[in-house]
Simulated assay, not measured.
Amino acid sequence: MNETVLDDQSSPQVRFGEELRRSRRARRWSQVVAAERLGYSPAHVSYVERAKRSATRPLAVKADEVFETGQKFYELWRRCTRAALLEGFAEFADAEARCRRLRTVGLVIVPGLFQTPAYARALAQASVRRGAISQAEADERTEYLALRQEILDQKTPPMVHAVIEEGALLRTVGGLRVMAEQLRHLEDLAGRPNITIQMAPFGIGENLPFTLPVVLLNLPDHSVVGYAESTAKGHLERSRTTVAGWEREYDQLLVEALPTAASLALIRKVRKELQP
């Protein structure tokens, strides 16, 4: 099959729809026939072709199978998800997927890798209601988060250490039921041998060294990179001097944070208070 040249000026979502239409017509299939083979309704196929509905990972995988296109649709779907991400985040996500060790500081909300689907959707929908992102972008972000979280379940997962500010437990996201489920998920994660969770209580006060969420990644080549983000953009930090400074502050935070047993007790206490 000849390689299709895609218009780089089009959005990833438009390019996915155009390639789906081109592949279908190359087989002389109607939308009804293509939909039957893909396992979706004709209306859904029509919406995706016209970029009125976002492509999903299952659709991309199935399209590659049906049209025998290797991973073309899968790669187009990955472009769609990245287009909805904060500037600089895609580069971080690539490094995160390869890391051997991950250290993170969670402020205000639970870190992404630990979020339940319902918790993540609640955050995304709040952004939609504020007009910050579109519904399609919200769907793409939650789908991409699920993809990132797969590193926790792989055969050899990275060692993960998270320090989460107490406020992230007390800030009810998605309602009481969603928040209780999220806290239960944190308890379950804390039971895994490769995951350590410590809480930073309000009593730390001015000794909390970070004012923005920070992630430190140990990569296979033994280098360490950092990631931080503002409201507008994210930044993957490679400067050894800067990253070493973040590592020192992280180590100081561990001294101030609650021990693991006390941290787990705090999570359970807050969860029980949420339940009627």
Rank of each mutant, 00 (worst) to 15 (best):
W29A: 13
L85Y: 13
P12S: 04
E96D: 11
V128F: 09
G17A: 04
S23A: 14
F67P: 01
G131N: 10
S10A: 13
R130T: 06
S127R: 08
F16M: 02
G39C: 06
L86P: 00
V105Q: 11
E96V: 03
A95R: 08
A124R: 00
R37W: 15
F73H: 02
L86V: 11
R121Y: 02
R27A: 09
V14G: 04
H44C: 06
P42V: 07
Q125W: 14
R24T: 03
I133T: 05
T69C: 05
G17I: 05
V110M: 05
E36M: 12
R50S: 08
I133R: 01
Y119R: 00
R37S: 04
K62M: 01
E96N: 03
V45T: 00
E49Y: 14
S30Y: 03
S11H: 08
A34M: 03
P12K: 08
R100D: 10
K62F: 02
P111G: 11
E49G: 01
A97L: 11
G106M: 11
R28Y: 13
Q13P: 02
T56D: 04
R79M: 14
P12T: 09
E68G: 07
A51L: 05
E65F: 03
S11E: 09
L20H: 12
W77M: 05
V33W: 03
E19F: 13
R101H: 11
E65M: 07
R50I: 09
P117E: 07
A126V: 09
G17Q: 05
T69N: 05
F67C: 02
V108M: 14
V61L: 10
Q135P: 00
Y119T: 06
A51W: 01
A122K: 13
G39W: 08
A126F: 07
W29L: 13
P58Q: 00
R98D: 15
S11G: 02
L38H: 08
L85M: 14
L85P: 02
S10I: 11
G88A: 05
T56A: 01
G17T: 01
K72L: 06
G39H: 02
C80H: 02
R100Q: 12
C99N: 04
A90I: 11
A34N: 02
Q125A: 12
T81E: 06
